[in-house]
């Protein structure tokens, strides 16, 4: 461990590699987490199937790649396809748990997660897959740092998607209805907003965002039917740390998590790369608890 730290201080150039890798992947984490913040904030549904929607999106890109379609074109396909899928899941399942206690939505989405990953496993098998975008890899700083073009492209795409989402939430009718419902669902209903439709749209939008994130993931990492749970935990870490309705916070936390994973993998070893994610989740919850503990008397 100390050896690895020594490497970083003697040859700081490797920090650049870790920073770049962390930021590129962190942007995609932030995207999926933004979807979670949306359903959490608007409908108070803790979607444990978040990561599995990401993986579904990845498989859409992979399947398209298999039949010769460029995986980047999978982005709109996954977005629309997952939107429809999310809407169906809402009508069949989420609508019925939305008014119930919170554990119900957690368990129900956990059930969805199991079904999604197992069906994917039946279709694609448990091998890791990757969607090859066929772009160049560039080497910078005397061959010490490599940057795959696809990482830059997906970073830009993730940013563009996030920007258009913000615009959508601010400007469009539906975006305004969503925000109104998030603030006070009962008041929104009285004002004539069809909250059921808003919920359906929100949930479907979340699935679509996850699908898009999955397409990007499948091009720069690898996907596998059972990788969803780690992505779900990442989303939870980010949202719990940032709080929902706090987009800059979500982005910062997403990037931070990407960096934390890369650095712990480098310094502590790959066996701690995932433990870091879970460890951060517990840590963030504890910090939240301490904060809440201070406010509890006041709030109640």
């Amino acid at each position: 461990m100390l050896d690895n730290l020594a490497v970083l201080s003697i040859a700081p150039v490797f920090n650049i590699q870790l920073l770049l890798d962390g930021l590129f992947i962190g942007a995609i984490f932030a995207l999926a987490a933004y979807g979670l913040a949306l359903v959490w904030g608007v409908m108070n549904v803790k979607n444990l199937a978040q990561g599995d929607y990401v993986i579904m999106g990845g498989y859409i890109a992979y399947s398209l790649g298999q039949i010769g379609v460029h995986p980047i074109l999978g982005l709109p396909v996954a977005f629309v396809g997952m939107f429809a899928f999310g809407w169906i899941v809402y009508v069949l399942i989420i609508r019925r748990v939305i008014e119930r206690d919170l554990f119900t939505s957690l368990l129900a989405t956990f059930g969805i997660a199991i079904v999604v990953q197992q069906v994917l496993n039946q279709i694609y098998g448990p091998e890791v897959r990757t969607a090859d975008a066929g772009l160049e890899v560039r080497t910078i700083i005397g061959g010490q740092v490599t940057v795959a073009d696809i990482r830059i492209v997906s970073f830009v795409l993730a940013a563009a998607l996030a920007a258009s989402l913000i615009l959508f939430m601010k400007r469009s009718r539906m975006g305004q209805a969503i925000r109104a419902t998030a603030q006070d669902a009962r008041a929104a209903k009285i004002m004539g907003i069809d909250t059921d439709r808003v919920y359906a749209f929100t949930y479907a939008l979340n699935a679509a965002i996850c699908g898009a994130a999955g397409v990007l993931i499948s091009m720069i990492w690898v996907i596998q039917p059972f990788f969803g749970i780690t992505h779900s935990i990442r989303s939870f870490v980010i949202v719990t740390a940032a709080g929902f309705g706090n987009l800059p916070g979500v982005i910062m936390a997403g990037l931070g998590l990407g960096l934390a994973e890369q650095y712990s993998g480098f310094v502590l070893g790959a066996e701690f790369q995932q433990a870091t994610v879970v460890g951060l989740l517990v840590l963030v919850l504890v910090i939240r608890q301490i904060q809440q503990g201070r406010q509890r008397q006041v709030v109640q």
């Binding site: 803790k46 935990i233 517990v282």
Partner: peptide
């Protein structure tokens, strides 16, 4: 974990077990 309420408790305990 006992300072956590509702779903936070569920997620927190899940996190502890996975960790």
């Amino acid at each position: 974990v006992f300072g956590l309420r509702g779903p936070y408790f569920a997620i927190g305990t899940l996190g502890v077990a996975i960790a």
